[in-house]
Each structure stands twice: as C-alpha cells, then as structure tokens.
C-alpha cells in the first residue's frame, strides 16, 4: 500500500445491491418504499373519485366507468395491495422503533408473514366487495 501512489491505482469498489444475495428483509424494505410511492399515486385516484362525487352524477359516472373497467380494477387491486402491505410493514416498523423484532430469524419470518398476510387480506377484501356488490343497490 505504501509503495504505490493512491491516485494511480485502481481502487476496489465496495459491493453493491446486485452483488448481494437478497435476504427477504431487503425485499420487504424496498417494497415498503415502493408501496409508499404507490400509495401516494393511488391517492390521486381517491381524490378524483371524491371530487367527481362532489361535482355531479356525470363526473361520477366517468370515474365509475374508468375504475370499473378491467385495467381500472387491476390498478385498484394493486393500490389496495400496496395500502395493506404498507400498513402491515409500517406496524412492523413501529415495533422496530420500540426495539422489538430485530433478531435476524424473527425479522425474516415476519417478512414472509407480512407478504402472505398482505396478499390474503387484499384478496379477502376483494372477495367481500364482490360478494356485497360493492354497495351497488
């Protein structure tokens, strides 16, 4: 090290994301951030729905047509999944803030539980919504 000039030498790079094998906690962490942005985008849909409802029947009919279409429903499904996931993992973050659940094995198991539970709750919500007709009278 002492016999070569530092600037003239190719310095080693520290390994980055694509080098590491992804533990599930790494995935849940980035999923939390992605779903946070997703939720922010989803609120635009909620606001559109609300503004249309306050505007009148025609504006509301347009929202219903767009959100009721197949692509609309897929986007709404993604939004609900994103919301539910972010809430479940957010609760885990609150426990982490209290210093609970940091053991690696615990964090990994909880990560898998959160992914599974988020999907299960979202599917349950949609099943319930379809069963109830989503409030259609």
């Amino acid at each position: 090290m002492s016999d070569s000039k530092p600037a003239a030498r190719e310095r080693p790079l520290s390994p980055h994301l694509q080098i590491y094998r992804w533990p599930v906690t790494m995935a849940t962490s980035i999923t939390h951030r992605i779903t946070g942005v997703g939720n922010a985008l989803g609120t635009v849909l909620v606001l559109w729905w609300l503004v249309a409802l306050a505007t009148g029947p025609d504006a509301y009919a347009l929202v219903q047509a767009v959100m009721g279409s197949i692509p609309g429903r897929l986007i709404l499904f993604g939004f609900t999944l994103s919301l539910v996931y972010h809430m479940l993992n957010g609760i885990r973050h609150l426990f982490w803030d209290a210093g609970i659940g940091f053991r690696v094995s615990t964090a990994s198991v909880v990560s898998v539980i959160i992914y599974t539970l988020a999907l299960a709750i979202t599917l349950g919500m949609w099943a319930a919504a379809y069963a109830l007709g989503g409030g259609v009278r």
Binding site: P57, L83, A129, L132, V136, R137
Partner: peptide, 25 residues
Amino acid sequence: AIANIPLVTCFLVSVVLYGAADYET
C-alpha cells in the same frame, strides 16, 4: 403512521362496502 392504522382501516372497510356504489348511495 399510528393515526393511519385505524383511519386507513375505516377507509378500506368503506371501500369494500361502498366502493362501487351509485351516485346517490
């Protein structure tokens, strides 16, 4: 985040119950 837990739950329940409701409902 803490306030969101009950409030988002209320929102999700509302969406399940009235997400596709007609204008008047």
